[in-house]
Simulated assay, not measured.
Amino acid sequence: MSAAAEVLHDEIAEQPRAWRGLLARDAEIAAVAGALGALDPPLVRIAAHGTSDHAAIYASYLLRALRGWTVVRDSMSMPLYYGVPAARPGEVAIGISQSGETPDVVAWLTRAGEAGATTVAITNGEGSALAQVADHVLYVGVGAERSIAATKTYTGTLAVLALLAGHLAGRGPALAAGLASAADAADVLLGGLDAVVAPVASALAGIDRMYLVARGIELATANEIALKLTEVCYLGAKAMSATAMAHGPVAALDADVPLWAIAAPDGTLPAVTEAAQRAQEAGAPVIASGPAASELGGAAHVLTVPALDEPLLSPLLSVLPGQAFAWALARAKGIDPGAPRHLRKVTSAA
């Protein structure tokens, strides 16, 4: 195993410890929540790219579920290239960038502030350009992430968002306790995950395409796993809502194009179950993951994660099998998962 591959593997394992570190700074997050809660904005805009945009998907569900706010993942192109105002007075604009140096996210947040919005930066980069232009800063603070593929900065961002939303809803202590429990569950899960994903990676080493489906809050997980499989394993991996599977993509499924289905034990389960059944009818192998993975009958591979008492935190655990599988599949394909081709590290960290 290369040194770079070891770094990625180590950073996957570091995630529970990183979440616990955030709990020590919960008061800082509570203070920002207090300032935002007093505004009660008519609209929350979020801008981000890549992994950070997947965290924005999570945020859009979380802030709606816990506080009732309307959230949009906003277009940066409209204000930056077409002259449209980035925001309106009274709104909240959140820029998410692991490095804090993504130029268009910085420019968008700057313009949103100039347009009268209250601005928030969520970043792992202390003293970064994004932090300097924001009214409020929430530092992910998971330490330097050296691997090219982001892992701990992604789940660290989810954890920050969960604590923020918890305080906004008056449930800060409950979400903090839930995060501590999630870290404990993740330690146990990660302890045996390599052995669980290794045979799945071996069985699927010949694939070059995959679809991933979920609904609701786990849609962030589907998108993040798809990105990891694309950048680390060079798969043509695409994530979508489970209900979108029937609108064309099911035609591409066959024995060589698996479906990864992320199942949660809530009202979204029937849609995910139906997508898995459609895939099986098309002859595609199904990989079932998530806390309700065992509910998807007939799956070729099952990667179950523990169900949490606070289900809104489930995406922190649900992404872990995907990260571990991407690392294992790359190795099964003869690819160095720590040194994906054509990529350079975007994320810098304090």
Rank of each mutant, 00 (worst) to 15 (best):
V7I: 15
A13F: 12
I29R: 08
A31S: 15
G37L: 12
G37S: 13
L39R: 15
P41K: 13
A47E: 10
I57T: 14
S60E: 11
S60K: 14
L62K: 07
R73T: 10
S75H: 03
Y81C: 13
V84S: 04
P85Q: 08
P85W: 11
I94R: 05
S97E: 10
P103D: 11
V106Y: 09
T110N: 13
E114F: 07
A115S: 11
I122Y: 04
T123Y: 02
V133K: 06
D135M: 07
H136Y: 08
K152Q: 01
G156M: 07
T157Q: 15
A162Q: 00
L168T: 05
A177W: 02
D184K: 13
A185P: 06
A186W: 01
L190Q: 14
V196F: 04
V196M: 11
A198M: 06
A201D: 02
L204Q: 01
R209W: 02
M210E: 02
M210P: 01
I217E: 04
E218L: 14
A222P: 03
I225D: 04
T230V: 09
Y234M: 08
A237C: 08
A239F: 10
A239M: 08
A239S: 14
M240W: 06
A251C: 11
D266P: 05
T273F: 11
A276L: 05
V286Y: 00
E295F: 11
L296M: 12
G297H: 13
G334I: 09
G334P: 12
R341K: 13
L343F: 09
K345R: 14
V346H: 03
